[in-house]
Amino acid sequence: MAKQLYYEDVEVGIEIPPLVKCPTTRQLVQWAGASGDYYELHYDKDFAQAQGFPNVLVHGKLKFGLLGQMLTDWIGEGGILRKLSCSYRGTDFPGEEIVCKGRVANKYVKDGEHIVECEIWTENPSGEKTTPGNATVILPSRAQDKKEA
């Protein structure tokens, strides 16, 4: 497991370590089974083409899940994901890379909680942000740890 991230480690503007993914059609079918979302747009190519898309689409909520993975990897076990929000603006297709990225937008302490707000998004191979959003996480603080010790 990666070493724990602390509130003091992050500054506004720093990047979240990117998570590179390349969903396959298999992964889309696995997601359908796991999420119970059996919409044909995500596995039936003829259906997707009849709807005007060149291929089946990656589920929006699967991209939500990937952004979630990027964040839980980053904040570690000591961090808490409080809010995750994203919009499914652009389509992504299986076999194409999806890079999950993020940047710290704000950090502050409120009611004793060390809060970090981030912009997050997924990027397609053309560098377009197909799934922009934001997230709020609570990180442990070194100062607090010392006080409690």
Partner: peptide, 27 residues
């Protein structure tokens, strides 16, 4: 999709085609 968001409500639309627009979850 088995339980939760949008389940159990009367979702009506004049259109047949649908896409997810976005999700925001507070944990």
């Amino acid at each position: 999709a088995r339980a939760g968001t949008g389940r159990g409500v009367q979702m009506k639309s004049p259109f047949l085609r649908a896409l997810a627009g976005g999700d925001e979850l507070q944990y």
